[in-house]
């Protein structure tokens, strides 16, 4: 057992207090925030516990499940990552788009969200915001992914309920819908 005491990142060294805090700007889902956090806090902790942005979920907090996936631009154009693995302060001045930034026109469900519902890709749903985030990114770069390409893009997201079959179907359906809409 590596640590019964559970030294979460937010307590490494027990560094509360003035010398342990960092203040920086962060734009989340279009809203600019000034964040004060401990130096070793993860982006996920800042989003959820400091800013109350609860769309990214805590599944493992060590980069294995993808429930915390967000799209973040740390000065290099932006990509989808695990918010639990990013020391929050490294995102100083950056922007984060969570699942809350994903929607269709006029706030309706996006094609990916719609397909997840239609295909039964959602059960307990704790993995869903991460999957929708990663699948949305996939379709932006590859509008017609093959099944192996879908799997290659999504294996950083774990699901314990569905067995993934409906998730693959949802991504395929969303891709078809999107291609039909842009044809």
């Amino acid at each position: 057992m590596s640590a019964v005491e559970d030294p979460r990142t937010d307590v490494a060294g027990g560094t509360d207090g003035a010398d342990g805090s960092v203040t920086f700007g962060l734009t989340v889902d279009g809203t600019a925030h000034e964040v004060t956090a401990r130096w070793d806090e993860s982006l996920l902790t800042v989003l959820r516990d400091r800013l109350g942005v609860r769309g990214p979920k805590t599944g493992c907090a060590h980069g294995r499940c993808g429930a915390c996936a967000v799209k973040a631009d740390l000065g290099d154009g932006g990509h989808v990552l695990c918010a639990c693995l990013v020391p929050a302060a490294t995102a100083a001045g950056g922007t984060v788009e969570t699942i809350a930034s994903i929607s269709g026109p006029d706030g309706a469900l996006s094609d990916v969200q719609e397909a997840f519902l239609a295909e039964g890709a959602v059960q307990c749903g704790i993995c869903t915001s991460g999957f929708v985030t990663a699948a949305t990114e996939l379709l932006e770069t590859n509008p017609d992914p093959t099944r192996p390409e879908i799997e290659a893009a999504l294996y950083g997201n774990l699901c314990r309920c569905t067995g993934y079959g409906r998730i693959v179907a949802a991504v395929e359906t969303a891709a078809r819908t999107r291609r039909a809409a842009t044809r």
Binding site: G55, S103, Q113, L117
Partner: peptide, 15 residues
């Protein structure tokens, strides 16, 4: 469809 589905795909469902 699941009645709780829309909130789940939007990341708005409260766990």
């Amino acid at each position: 469809r699941r009645p709780d589905g829309p909130a789940k795909v939007r990341g708005e469902f409260s766990y």
